[in-house]
Design a protein around this nucleic acid. Structure first.
Length: 548
RNA sequence: GGGCCGGUAGCUCAGUUUGGCAGAGCGUCUGGCUUUUAACCAGAUGGCCGCGUGUUCAAAUCGCGCCCGGCCCGCCA
């Protein structure tokens, strides 16, 4: 058999399911797997976890959720591939609170001496966790938790140390010739010297590739610590020669992946498109012909861009999960990853309002509101219940950009009042729903601030900005103050602004600017009269009179 | 060079599996409203479905060729 009989694209293409996770679940069920069904993902804890990593976790989550919904027992496992070697230093790190720390702020030299060593053998630069690997795995764990998803983390290093991999390693080493034959069909450089095992050098701690001898009865491997080529760079070996047990090293990735399938009894694994044509086909062959396990049901997902460009940890073009969750609700981020896995999309911070709007419509469609997405009903019906933690029909969503307008004031009571006036919240809205709806205001405020967009105005309530108006403007503002003091609604105030400006022969734009300066310390802002009409009158009057 | 995935309105995306009138939201324009700017309501606007070609009564959808973007075909993961 060859890899061609499990095409990682076929699982989705060959189904008439409206929701891709159903198609995957069908493929898994067709194999009649033993319970619990195991869904796996994995990543190297090489640096700050970002939303790219969420792709793998959420794709798995939806498949797990569908299977559970069908009555299966499911384990969603995520391997921290933490015995991988540190190949280059990241430019940025993050402490356990998520604060970004430049490489220069930690002991970069100390970290640099760990190139070539497994992540779990490198000290945590922040000194809190057991190792570098544990530190970044912990950050990822936090992100997953914030998304409201339960995942069982498995440390790859732990699998080696506990001996869980012993049988597979022995088997691979005992069948080296087969291993070489199988892998050489996928990789050119597999020669007679190739041994599918890296030993951890007892002297310098690096994972070294030059295996000089094997004693399979004693479970021992001899090595020489030579230079290692990684990409363009060379990590110098220390030259030490020694012998370690099979627990003190690791399998190369192409063998390790199938070994994980076997040891963890994996039934499904999603992976990025980068794996689709290299790792996957070789993994299938290695699994069947070397490791002796049937590969899991595969699924490829497309990468997405961030603001139009590829995510890149090394260049720092990434966004962390906690940052994103400052801008939108977890269910919106979950929604982003419930969509068609093979479509290339952009995650745009700038136009995050569009994503939130789309989510709102998605949700409204589920509850059968009019004017929503007709063509998607079957998909929405199936997918929505897994996107939210709880299906609650009387939940309220304030339109995102309107939430941004509400965010111009810090006064939470005022925010609620305006939302009620606009009809987004009614007397029938339960208290929990009010709280949930207004929670979006703070996020939209963060968004406006972060992007510095047209919603980024802040009512200067505490303290009056420095102003310097001419006599006509001063007189006009006083008149406007008197008008407001009489008690008029926002619309009337807006008209009066124009009237007042005309009476005093002040340029319209200049007069508005004066108002924006007074309230926002800015040249422009929201529709002024309407906005002032929603604030408490005493404050508006006093401010127009420049008294506070 | 070979392979894989994607390309639909100005923007963000449905629709392609199973061929049957080209869709939504945002944006834009007009009006509601003596009024630069958010929000709200009503209406309008918007497309060579990447390009070409074949099959068909009929193609965004199926076949073939090409173009563009990303990825793989070295190592590593």
């Amino acid at each position: 058999m060859t890899a061609s009989d499990i095409d990682p694209y076929e699982v989705l293409a060959d189904s008439d399911r409206a929701f891709w996770a159903d198609a995957v679940a069908d493929a898994i069920e067709a194999r009649e797997p033993e319970e619990p069904i195991v869904i796996k993902g994995g990543v190297s804890p090489s640096g700050i976890p970002h939303i790219g990593h969420v792709n793998e976790i959420l794709r798995s989550y939806y498949v797990a959720a569908v299977l559970r919904d069908r009555g299966h027992e499911v384990r969603q496992v995520f391997t921290a591939d933490d015995r991988d070697r540190l190949r280059k230093l990241p430019r940025q790190l993050a402490d356990l609170e998520g604060n970004i720390v430049g490489l220069g702020e930690v002991d970069a030299g100390a970290l640099g001496r760990n190139l070539g060593r497994p992540y779990t053998d490198i000290p945590d630069p922040f000194g809190a966790s057991d190792s570098y690997g544990d530190h970044f795995t912990e950050l990822l764990r936090q992100s997953v938790e914030e998304l409201g998803i339960e995942v069982e983390f498995v440390s790859n290093t732990e699998l080696y140390e506990s001996g869980a991999f012993d049988d597979v390693i022995r088997h691979v080493l005992a069948n080296q010739e087969t291993a070489r034959d199988v892998l050489s069909a996928h990789q050119d450089k597999i020669d007679e010297e190739y041994v599918p095992f890296f030993a951890i050098c007892q002297s310098c701690g690096q994972l070294t590739e030059a295996i000089t001898g094997l004693d399979l009865d004693a479970d021992e491997v001899s090595y020489a610590c030579t230079d290692i080529e990684t990409g363009d760079e060379t990590i110098a070996g220390c030259g030490h020669e020694g012998t370690v047990t099979i627990r003190e090293g690791k399998l190369p990735w192409r063998f390790e992946w199938p070994a994980q399938w076997k040891v963890l009894d994996v039934d499904f694994e999603p992976f990025g498109k980068d794996h689709a044509e290299g790792s996957w086909p070789s993994g299938v062959d290695v699994a069947r012909d070397v490791v002796d396990v049937e590969p899991p049901v595969p699924m490829v997902y497309e990468w997405f861009t961030l603001d139009g460009e590829a995510l890149s940890s090394s260049s720092g073009h990434v966004v962390r999960v906690d940052e994103v969750l400052d801008l939108l609700e977890p269910e919106v981020l979950r929604y982003f990853f419930v969509k068609e896995p093979l479509k290339q999309r952009d995650f745009s911070i700038e136009s995050i309002d569009q994503l939130v709007d789309e989510f709102d419509r998605f949700e409204a469609t589920y509850f059968g509101e009019q004017g929503t997405i007709d063509s998607e009903h079957a998909f929405v019906e199936q997918a929505y219940p897994f996107v939210v933690d709880e299906i609650q029909e009387d939940r309220v969503r304030i339109p995102y950009t309107f939430a941004a307008v509400l965010g111009m004031t810090n006064d939470e009571q005022l925010r609620e009042e305006i939302a009620r006036k606009q009809g987004h919240i009614t007397d029938d809205t339960p208290a929990w729903a009010v709280e949930g709806a207004l929670g979006r205001v703070e996020r939209a405020r963060n968004w406006a601030r972060r992007t510095g967009n047209e919603f980024d105005y802040e009512l200067k309530r505490g303290e009056m900005p420095d102003v310097d108006f001419d006599d006509e403007t001063t007189a006009a503002l006083d008149e406007l103050a008197d008008f407001v003091a009489e008690g008029h609604d926002g619309e009337a105030i807006q008209s009066e602004i124009y009237e007042t400006a005309k009476r005093h022969d002040i340029d319209m734009g200049a007069f508005f600017s004066a108002g924006y300066r007074l309230f926002f310390d800015d040249d422009e802002g929201p529709q002024l009269g309407t906005f002032l009409g929603k604030l408490d009158r005493e404050f508006v009057v006093d401010r127009l009179r420049r008294e506070r």
